[in-house]
Simulated scan of single mutants.
Amino acid sequence: MFILPEKIKIIEVGPRDGLQNESRHVQEDDKLAFIEALQNAGISEMELTSFVSPKWVPQMADAPTIVKKAKHIGRQFVLAPNAKGAELALEAGAQSIAVFVGVSNTFNQKNINRTTQESLEALDPVISTLKDKGIFVRACISTAFYCPYEGKMDPDAVVALCKRFVAMGADELSVADTIGRANPQESYELFKKLKEEIPGILLTAHFHDTRKMALANTFAALQAGIDRFDTSAGGLGGCPFAPGATGNVATEDVVNMLDTLGIETGVDVKKVCEAVALIAPHVSRPIETGMYRLFVNGQL
């Protein structure tokens, strides 16, 4: 018989992962209002933005301003793919920085023009410098289950990559089903293996809902002992370098599931939906998550 965690930490990724692939430009003030509303809902860890080239991800061009103007509540991450991004993030005042590498070589090459090994070698001195400055480092493991180009990933390769990041000084691992193809058995088995082989590290599950299995995968990860989850209000999201990947699992739906299981999150579902209502007019696709539909219909 499995024992579920009593308390779960929700890490909101909507302002960055949720909006990065949005085709309609979202204004800075609308992003800040979205962030503040999520904080008011009880979110104490959030991925705010990313310091990437505006040429490739124009939605994130306002990153320095977002970091400077957002209310500082809890731990706030920014994504920095390389040394230049990390330098700009620090200049803006970021205190927690996320880096990323895909298990898949092909995904890495299409994303950042480097193999997995080359990516690690480039990030090693970056992480070392960040740790010397007292910065919290989150390592995002992309394509941990499947790659849009290479197919199914070897779980041993995922574990090996995670161990490399731990050895480099990462404080947290966010392990992602980037294209939303994993099933609950795969979710349970990989996270159980990671918990066993890398004890003591903050371990976070990150699911996309491409095949509508993200909630099931979340529950499977809970069974494996995971107590940290990346979620995106409104189910916003997608990856410019992962064809076919849709949004992240919706914050409001995950929190509702956890509430019904009696698991504490500290997050108010209705207030998350109020935050979604603020951003909904500014994104290009309708938001149709389960709890948000109930909210819009006055049933929440």
Rank of each mutant, 00 (worst) to 15 (best):
G266W: 10
S53W: 12
N248W: 09
E45A: 07
G238Y: 02
T116D: 02
R181T: 12
P281D: 06
L190K: 01
I179C: 09
L300V: 00
V254M: 09
A176Q: 02
Y292I: 03
S53D: 09
T129D: 15
P184L: 11
L88F: 14
T265W: 01
C162R: 05
T178W: 10
Q59A: 09
D253S: 00
A37F: 11
R181D: 07
E22A: 05
A83S: 02
C140I: 14
N113R: 12
E274R: 13
L32M: 10
E172A: 14
I8Q: 08
A224Q: 01
G237V: 06
N82F: 07
Q39I: 14
L38S: 03
D29G: 09
L203K: 03
P58T: 07
A94G: 07
R114H: 12
A182L: 11
K270M: 11
M46Y: 04
P155S: 13
L161P: 02
D177A: 12
L278I: 15
H72E: 15
D29V: 11
N108A: 07
G237S: 06
T289E: 00
V57E: 08
A245I: 03
I226W: 08
F295T: 03
N111M: 06
R228Y: 12
L236W: 00
L194R: 01
A220I: 10
G74D: 00
T218K: 04
D177H: 09
K133H: 02
K163N: 11
A250S: 12
G14Y: 01
V67F: 04
C147E: 03
E172G: 06
G74L: 04
I35C: 01
S284P: 02
K31Q: 11
P125N: 03
Y146M: 12
G266T: 01
G200A: 08
K71N: 14
F107P: 02
G85A: 13
D209V: 05
R114I: 11
F34Y: 13
P54C: 10
V255N: 00
G247F: 08
L19P: 01
S187W: 04
G225K: 04
P286W: 08
H72Q: 15
Y292N: 00
V52G: 10
M257V: 13
R114Y: 10
D17R: 08
V126N: 00
E118L: 12
G102F: 03
E47F: 08
M168S: 06
R138I: 08
T106L: 10
T143L: 10
D259H: 15
N113Q: 11
G200R: 03
H25Y: 12
V126C: 06
I287G: 05
D227C: 13
T265I: 11
I66V: 15
A167F: 06
H72P: 07
E186F: 05
E197P: 02
P58Y: 07
A98C: 13
I97M: 06
E118I: 10
I112T: 11
F100C: 09
E12D: 02
E150Q: 10
C162I: 09
E186L: 05
L203P: 00
F145S: 10
E274S: 10
K193G: 06
V283C: 04
K270Q: 14
L48Q: 01
